[in-house]
Design a protein around this nucleic acid. Structure first.
Lengths: 347, 347
DNA sequence: AATATTTATGGGAACGATCCCATATATGAG
DNA sequence: CTCATATATGGGATCGTTCCCATAAATATT
């Protein structure tokens, strides 16, 4: 194979430019720094030509040392490879980059220890800001970072930190409402009461509230607790099938997320129960796979892009005004109608 | 809402630590810098206590100014929210972070202009290295970055740049081999001859080679050209159905990627043709959805993790030895057997 | 015991920009 | 024509580290 993979560029600084243009480095600085100062047209011209000629690039790391700005933002999320988070990452990047920021993404994999390492990094690398989804609710730690921070989630504990997230109560209600409208009255809910996903209890709450509102009596047997993964879906199918007289007791299944819904759908088919025909199933999230399943899954889409954009904008705001009032934004879920829910009104 | 979102930390530098410990900043530097120098045990102890007491964190940006290391790596990919790339991103991050590097991810969205902006950034932000998938084949530009670079892809033009990628020829062959083994002889191929996806022609080549090798005559009508997206899948289904006497002419369908395969599968079902029963379908990529379709899709998985890890390791190597020999790594695809291919030997 | 070597420490110059202040020139007011 | 003001430019300190060199003290060598 070849050699000398790339030329190790000799660095050219403001000094070389100044020398070539026959001015002082201060003048060059005035030209390249956006704030700028008074520079005569001829000098400007000369400096720009020198920059051009030498192929000079400003070293923003060095500049940042003086100005205390790094133009780097840390995005700390559970997993970049998880579509929910990668879409948020994309939205964050897309709104921050035009403002001149670069985004470092850190995946915590829901590990407290990894999260801790990123906090450490945030302090050493001196980011201009941090956008994060914290596993732990270590609000003090975030506040002590000494760096503007925006939380993604629905933390109620974090009173004095900017937050954006999904309005889970509303999103659940949207799904319930749709099932109700299409004629379902015996709605089962599959959710998790797992520790770290504490906010899911919000779903159960919204569920009960809705039933109450519609005058439907709450049947505790229809509240299934499963892990929110593919295994959980199979588990859910089994739990459902083993429920005494289930065909009479449930006409629809509201799943905590799409993964569970899809997996349950596939498992139930093995027993001849087809979603959208024999039983209605609705998911939550709208993962990319949901439009590709058979039948395509009706679900409530979480506003990923909006969350990402809002988080980024909020951070920008916070950076420019560190002492402004704290903001909290919750965005509604959006119903995506596909084919896994039966329209029982038709008859 | 509240106010004072976070305390704006007063910065403590090496100086404050030095003062408290009663030593010079040089000594403190010896303690905190990994290279270190000779420091007596008592002094070390005193300095460490001072660091602890003041909650001092080293500013790696400032340190980098002197050492010419930023511990930042740029990962330039088409789209973070695309599962193929986000998994590579994860692998890259997971191998680079333990070495102390942070990864900035840039999405080019296959746009030359955005790609160009990142090159610009790479020069200003002074990354220690760049891992990229280039839309353009602007090899000179990459070499002129003056920064170690590793390419992800199968560029043959880039002779003197480190490269890692999938062995498309082999991956295609693996899929063909499996279809052949399970008794298929009339294999159709759906691929794209689209410009930017030039490498796909490799698939057609591997396909023809394989047929030739097995003594099967090549039927040009069985080589379908479609876009590699969901629309392309529908298109493919239609093309297939309109092919004269197709049931006799094709027993299996090798799709250019999973999206096409899944979409074709769903479309064909509308006409009563079930994958895995009436027709064999095999995909390429193994996107997350593939395990959740009905039937689950048999496919050839591209070695995403291996690519990411290898790219990162190669970059590390290149950073520590800028003038070492150029390396090229192509990783094989892996057959993922699920249920969309019929075993025709059983009869 | 005198000299050579190692070990521990401090002082100051980098790194590459920005920014404050001083100075020189150009322009305007009276 | 003088004085005040605005405009253009340069010099040096600064941001927070590392690194080189000088010096002092401790230890080893002969």
């Amino acid at each position: 194979m070849g050699t000398i993979p790339y030329m190790s560029k000799q660095k050219i600084s403001i000094h070389e430019v100044a020398r070539l243009a026959g001015v002082s480095k201060s003048t060059v600085s005035r030209v390249i720094s956006d704030k700028g100062g008074a520079v005569s047209p001829e000098t400007l011209e000369r400096v720009q030509r020198a920059i051009e000629q030498l192929g000079y690039r400003k070293n923003i790391v060095a500049a940042g040392l003086r100005t205390q700005k790094t133009y780097m933002v840390l995005l700390m999320i559970p997993d970049v490879a998880n579509p929910f988070w990668s879409e948020i990452a994309r939205a964050v990047q897309d709104t921050l980059e035009p403002e001149g920021y670069s985004v470092v993404i850190g995946s915590t994999y829901w590990s407290e220890e990894r999260e801790s390492r990123y906090y450490e990094l945030a302090q050493m690398a001196r980011f201009d800001g941090v956008i994060l989804n914290s596993v732990t609710d270590n609000i003090d730690r975030i506040k002590n970072l000494g760096v503007p921070a925006v939380l993604i989630g629905e933390r109620t504990a974090a009173q004095d930190i900017d937050t954006v997230g999904t309005d889970t109560l509303q999103a659940t209600k949207v799904g319930m409402e749709y099932l109700y409208e299409t004629g379902h009255r015996r709605i089962a809910l599959a959710t998790s009461d797992h520790g770290s996903e504490r906010y899911l209890s919000l779903r159960a709450r919204a569920y009960k509230d809705f039933l109450h509102e519609k005058g439907i009596s709450f049947d505790p047997a229809l509240l299934f607790s499963v892990n929110l993964d593919a295994e959980g879906g199979k588990d859910l199918a089994k739990q459902l099938l083993s429920l005494h007289d289930w065909t009479a007791r449930v006409d629809s299944l509201f799943c905590g997320n799409d993964i569970v819904a899809i997996s349950a759908m596939n498992e139930l088919r093995k027993y001849g129960i087809i979603a959208g025909i024999d039983l209605s199933i609705i998911g939550m999230d709208d993962v990319p796979a949901s439009s590709q399943t058979y039948p395509p899954l009706t679900t409530v889409r979480k506003p990923r892009e909006r969350i990402g954009v809002a988080a980024a904008q909020l951070l920008l705001k916070r950076i420019s005004d560190p002492l402004g009032p704290v903001e909290k934004h919750l965005f509604p879920g959006e119903l995506i109608v596909r084919d896994s829910v039966i329209d029982r009104r038709k008859k």
